[in-house]
Write a protein that binds this DNA or RNA. Structure first.
Lengths: 144, 144
DNA sequence: GCTATTTGGTGGACAATATCAACCATATTC
DNA sequence: GAATATGGTTGATATTGTCCACCAAATAGC
């Protein structure tokens, strides 16, 4: 017999792990030369106007050294480009290159497949509720 | 403006990541010489009667090579012990040593703190619903 | 203005986690 | 008894995460 705490712990671990595995597989099947973090960061860059490295750090919660390296990789793959940030000479604005946009269009398809499968048989309000609860839990962990 | 798919994706990634970070920190603060996977596996071993390596592989979804190595580490730390499996000479039954039990008692406390924080302000039925939805999503991803 | 501190970013070094394939010994199937 | 499947191990390598020192520009305090 397992406790409720174990349930929630397990639910989070397992769901995240399986989701990662499925996403990775989908990306592979589409023949895209990207791994998980690449895709996540490209998403953020695509969705964030005037995106700087620091914004990605804050939004992702990852270490800034990690972000620096990932951006360097993405740049060497010609998927993103950097332009000077007029507001702060220390930083640069990163944006998707054409090649990056094209790749992400396909990545979105691949990920869409996974999300569709994930949400199969779920009602709209169930999904909303789930996302809402997850958000509250996240806030709980973050504050303090 | 972000799509619903991005919401659910983000919710899962972020919650899992923050949960991992918080758990790791809690374990550290308790001064326990364990990392995330160690704790997860020790949990399973403690909760599974006649636990074999293969059971951990199946329950965790991780690669069996990874499990082998983690078990080897845990054994060298004297947290677990292996005894021959009477039903199959290829495998062994792993179980917590006294030292392992003691450590896990403290790890449970540390993790309990995190779960308590995670669930702050959540109603029982909200938690149940969340775990239930997570389970369904997990099934969706796993089947096929 | 001019230090002192903070902030955005980079690099080194390394730890933790994950993946893939080859392989051995036993178990199972036929 | 041969062929195949299964539990487990090892090697090699990729990915992800962490910590620390550091530089240059920005900001705060005076």
């Amino acid at each position: 017999m397992v406790s409720k705490e174990a349930d929630i712990r397990n639910a989070i671990w397992q769901l995240a792990f399986q989701f990662k595995v499925s996403s990775k597989k989908a990306i592979r099947q589409y023949g895209l030369p990207l791994n998980g973090m690449h895709v996540r960061i490209l998403h953020m860059i695509g969705a964030t106007p005037a995106c700087t490295a620091n914004r990605i750090v804050l939004a992702s919660g990852r270490d800034k050294a990690q972000i620096t390296r990932l951006l360097k990789e993405l740049e060497s793959m010609l998927l993103i480009q950097r332009t000077p940030n007029p507001d702060d000479k220390r930083s640069q604005i990163v944006s998707l290159s054409e090649k990056g946009e094209a790749l992400m269009a396909r990545a979105r398809e691949a990920e869409q497949d996974v999300v569709t499968r994930l949400l199969k048989g779920m009602k709209k309000d169930e999904i909303d509720r789930f996302v809402g609860l997850a958000g509250r839990m996240l806030d709980n962990l973050r504050e303090e």
